[in-house]
């Protein structure tokens, strides 16, 4: 009988630890990306002087940290058939720091050089918050002269 009682005390101890540790979880909410420009299916001009019009709104429940933009070719659904000649597959990758709960970004920092191969590309936007929650989205864009 004594053993039984002790056993249950032990169980209670376990549960009290479990309940103790049942604190609110820290932030697991991902930031939200609202990409305004370029939109799905947009055409981006090769060799444009002003660069690509890039406009996006980020928001997070706590604190934004950084975002990254990547553009890579999607010729023939990622089989990456190479275009011959002088043109090269365009690739862009850059990250920026941001902060606060909301960030409205607008810039023309993405420039596409004259020798970029025209065709289908993916444009991806990644965003992280201070806790490491991450969102990303992808849109299909076309590069043309």
């Amino acid at each position: 009988m004594k053993l039984k009682i002790v056993f249950f005390i032990c169980l209670m101890a376990i549960f009290s630890i479990v309940l103790n540790s049942c604190k609110e979880d820290s932030d697991t909410t991902k930031p939200v990306i609202n990409l305004i420009e370029p939109a799905e299916g947009d055409a981006l001009q090769i060799g444009g002087e002003n660069g690509v019009h890039f406009e996006v709104e980020f928001s997070d429940n706590e604190m934004l940290a950084s975002y990254k933009v990547n553009i890579h070719s999607n010729f023939d659904g990622h089989t990456h058939a190479r275009a011959s000649g002088a043109s090269v597959d365009y690739e862009f990758e850059k990250s920026w720091s941001i902060s606060g709960k909301n960030a409205d970004i607008y810039h023309h920092e993405i420039t596409i050089p004259e020798n970029a191969t025209p065709g289908d590309y993916h444009l991806m936007v990644y965003c992280t918050d201070a806790a490491g929650n991450e969102s990303h989205i992808a849109v299909n864009v076309a590069l043309s002269h």
Partner: peptide, 27 residues
Amino acid sequence: SPFFSWFDNYIYLKPTGEWSILPHAGQ
């Protein structure tokens, strides 16, 4: 059947917040 485990070193995949240099990857 209740159970309780405590690990002082439990290995997991931690999101680092560092952007990967590999193409096509987030953090």
